[in-house]
């Protein structure tokens, strides 16, 4: 069995080196997450028409996450108008607290795109170790900035990065 497995590994590895023509280039690695209606959504379909995307991993029980997202929500309207940025928040809540995500987000009047990553597939694909962890991603899927924690004031640095990114793409 072990031998077969290792053979399989190698053959797959070889396959990976054979040049393939990518028809669709996705910004994010593929993983199944759920939206607030409970529908399965593949993260490879996340996009923002060539404008930057902020992805923030959080949980309903994580105090700094809530502090960060509450602050971002207050700024989101202005940021969207000025830069076209999209903020996607991905809850890492498991079966214990996942049913609270939708009521919580609505109760907080948050305007982000919200997804649940109950099985942790997207979290693993993005190499997230602990929450809060946010990424700023450009149109090609390149990680421009990332941050693993939240301190009041972090949002200013994030916005500078977003503005830099949109200034470049406007040229």
């Amino acid at each position: 069995m072990k031998r077969i497995l290792s053979l399989l590994f190698i053959s797959l590895a070889i396959v990976s080196f054979t040049p393939t023509e990518d028809t669709k280039k996705s910004i994010f690695p593929a993983a199944n997450v759920k939206n607030l209606k409970g529908e399965l959504v593949n993260t490879s379909t996340f996009s923002n028409d060539g404008k930057p995307i902020v992805v923030s991993f959080w949980a309903t029980w994580c105090k700094p996450c809530i502090q960060e997202l509450t602050t971002l929500n207050g700024l989101y309207e202005d940021w969207k108008k000025e830069t076209g940025v999209k903020i996607i928040i991905v809850s890492t809540d498991d079966a214990r607290t996942a049913p609270k995500v939708a009521p919580f987000v609505n109760g907080k009047r948050w305007d982000f795109d919200v997804y649940l990553d109950e099985n942790g597939d997207f979290k693993r694909a993005m190499n997230v170790n602990s929450v809060p962890h946010s990424f700023l991603i450009d149109k090609d899927g390149k990680v421009i900035a990332q941050h693993n924690s939240y301190a009041p004031g972090d949002e200013e640095k994030l916005y500078e990065e977003i503005k830099k990114l949109t200034a470049v793409s406007d040229k």
Partner: peptide, 29 residues
């Protein structure tokens, strides 16, 4: 050890870095 070796070959063979997306890169934590 053998697995490790295979992986090393794969990782050394790939060049790009720091991409969230699905095209050719090493990532980790």
């Amino acid at each position: 050890l053998f697995y490790l070796l295979v992986y090393c070959v794969i990782f050394v063979g790939s060049a790009s870095y720091g991409f969230a997306q699905s095209d050719g890169g090493i990532s980790g934590n």
